[in-house]
Write a protein that binds this DNA or RNA. Structure first.
Lengths: 219, 219
DNA sequence: ACTGTTACTCACCGATTGGTGACAGACCGG
DNA sequence: CCGGTCTGTCACCAATCGGTGAGTAACAGT
């Protein structure tokens, strides 16, 4: 039997061996990072661990320790990689829109953020992780996300002056909080505070309500 | 040495033995439920398991299987116990307030809900659990919470007619979503979307913004 | 006082977790 | 060709997890 395995290894037919791990550190590092991101996006942070990542990446967990210094470093790498979120989420037709007032801007940003978060499972998991735990890992990841989001907002916002007499920081925090919780609750259970959110029609109603909310404070 | 322990047991001085477990099924059941609730409220759902609950309750985990049928039954018992949330959270001065419009009502409800959620760690953990997982346990708990919240809203709401032309279900879902996420994020990291939420002054600003948001849609 | 039921504890199981040290093979510079 | 470094694999560790079966001590009924 020892002979058989040796012969198989020498042959490298690849039929039984789906992917022969070649000797390429860069590729392995990328595979690990990709596996971690996918695992986090699909399974959530509950079963996110060294063993699970290594299993999905198809390599030994020892390599995660060697290349990323353990789970913490890997999470940090995910956070650093989160910067790519910004350039993927900038629509091209910003010039074609006429954002005359702060209300126009916030309405557009809210809807864009809603849509962006709705089809980005990784980002959703990170947000859910943020409100569930307070470890060093999460703190780093949260910081990276906040930074990426801030950068995104900067890119989207023109040079519109915010209205006076309104605590825009607090109001906007509430608006974005509502969007995040809505999307998270919908992704988890298909509804939020009794409001069913499954098909496109449900989401249209939510978007209309969101517009109304934004227009209510920002004219 | 065997003599020593025997003597100690007979003496029941209680100095070395903090709490001698007496033979009382009802008390034990209550101790388990209380331990589970406290554990969930303090530690979160991450380290919530049979062993941890039994450890905190100071009894053997076997009793949890016997009395509650495992963790699932225990979680269900927590959910059933959640009904007590309603009667604890109904202010006594409802008669003293004059809620003339739907806007008055929603403003008051929003602020009450914000305050209630802010000093109820167990409820916070459950909400965080809801948006993080989708197991049967969480689903049951979520249903119980939703029911309790609905009952609370019914008790608080008079017979005010909602305004026409507004999707109150969607708008209210957004409002409550914003409150929940704000409180959760604050409890986890002390801030929400860049808005620091630590001392009372911060929360006053948030409450003002919330009022403005509600008044914006409901006049 | 004997008996059976109830309340409770203990010891063990297999599986999985995070983590580490030792080893095998490919590659490269000398 | 040889020795060292780099990449990857494997075996093992203690700890913890959920779960179960067997055993013990206190009580109640007769």
């Amino acid at each position: 039997m020892l002979n058989e395995t040796a012969v198989a290894a020498l042959e490298q037919t690849g039929a039984a061996e789906p992917e022969k791990r070649i000797r390429d550190r860069g590729a392995t590092e990328r595979a690990i990072l990709k596996a971690a991101k996918n695992l986090l996006a699909e399974e959530g942070f509950q079963n996110f661990g060294i063993n699970a990542v290594a299993r999905r990446a198809g390599c030994d967990k020892q390599l995660i320790y060697r290349y990323y210094g353990g789970l913490d470093g890997l999470v940090e790498a995910i956070g650093a990689d989160l910067g790519s979120w910004v350039k993927d989420r900038i629509p091209e037709d910003t010039g074609g829109m006429f954002l005359l007032t702060y209300g126009d801007l916030m309405e557009r940003l809210s809807l864009l953020f809603l849509e962006a978060l709705r089809d980005d499972p990784l980002m959703r998991r990170i947000v859910a992780w943020e409100v569930s735990e307070n470890t060093e890992q999460v703190r780093r990841l949260s910081e990276a996300r906040s930074k990426a989001l801030g950068l995104w907002l900067d890119r989207m916002r023109g040079s519109l002056a915010p209205p006076k007499g309104v605590d825009t920081a607090a109001v906007n925090a509430l608006i974005f909080a509502s969007i995040q919780h809505l999307v998270l609750a919908a992704a988890a259970g298909g509804q939020c505070a009794g409001l069913v959110l499954k098909n496109g029609k449900d989401w249209e109603k939510a978007a209309t309500a969101l517009k109304r909310l934004v227009r209510g404070v920002y004219g």
